[in-house]
């Protein structure tokens, strides 16, 4: 097994380590994370392989994999990792680097997940809080799947499970400003 890495400046490994606050080189490939991860069977590469790919500087392959988008940040893996690596933070670091550098995995599932998050953040930007019904409707429209979950609609709406409106925040301006400032900070981080 290859465990050597190109440790040095400006490597993918260094970038991930810096962003995650963990040292991926600590990983000794035991695979405990894979057996713990509830979504590893949906991933192109399970967490253990992602760790090895980072060590081997397989940047593009790692960034284009759906793995980091499927991570639920449930922290089951890191709780059991014998090397105490914060694996969800590593997954997140890889994902954030991918967003910054415009890597777009082709899979439809990843595109949907990404769209969902964009719509969710858009709802908060507009209302300061999540408008659940509108979020679901926009997701269906933007993913061109109008009838998704429609079988639940009569039950969920009639029973009042999902209310029709939203109580938005009063200081909408403060939220908009926060979004602008956060975007600036993200640009500085690049």
């Amino acid at each position: 097994m290859i465990t050597l890495s190109y440790k040095g400046k400006n490597t993918f490994l260094e970038a991930v380590n810096k962003k995650s606050g963990s040292d991926v080189l600590e990983c000794y490939q035991c695979g405990k994370c894979v057996s713990t991860c509830p979504v590893s069977n949906f991933m192109d590469f399970p967490p253990r392989e992602i760790m090895q790919m980072i060590k081997l500087e397989l940047k593009e392959e790692t960034q284009m994999a759906n793995s980091t988008w499927f991570c639920l940040t449930c922290s089951a893996c890191s709780g059991r990792c014998p090397r105490e690596i914060n694996i969800p933070a590593v997954m997140e670091a890889v994902r954030h680097l991918a967003i910054e550098e415009n890597f777009h995995p082709d899979s439809k599932q990843v595109k949907n997940i990404r769209k969902f998050h964009e719509i969710f953040l858009d709802m908060i930007k507009r209302y300061g809080r999540n408008y659940e019904l509108r979020m679901m409707a926009e997701f269906n429209i933007r993913t061109r799947n109008l009838f998704k979950d429609m079988h639940l609609a009569p039950k969920a709406l009639l029973k009042g499970k999902i209310p029709l409106g939203v109580k938005s925040v009063k200081s909408a301006k403060a939220i908009k400003k926060m979004y602008e400032m956060a975007e600036k900070l993200e640009q500085q981080n690049k």
Partner: peptide, 22 residues
């Protein structure tokens, strides 16, 4: 008073600064 959304999964998935700011 006038609390806002925490950003949930979406903020920390997409934007680190926003995930802390909210």
């Amino acid at each position: 008073p006038d609390w806002n959304c925490c950003g949930a999964t979406s903020a920390h998935t997409m934007n680190e600064s926003l995930a802390y700011a909210l």
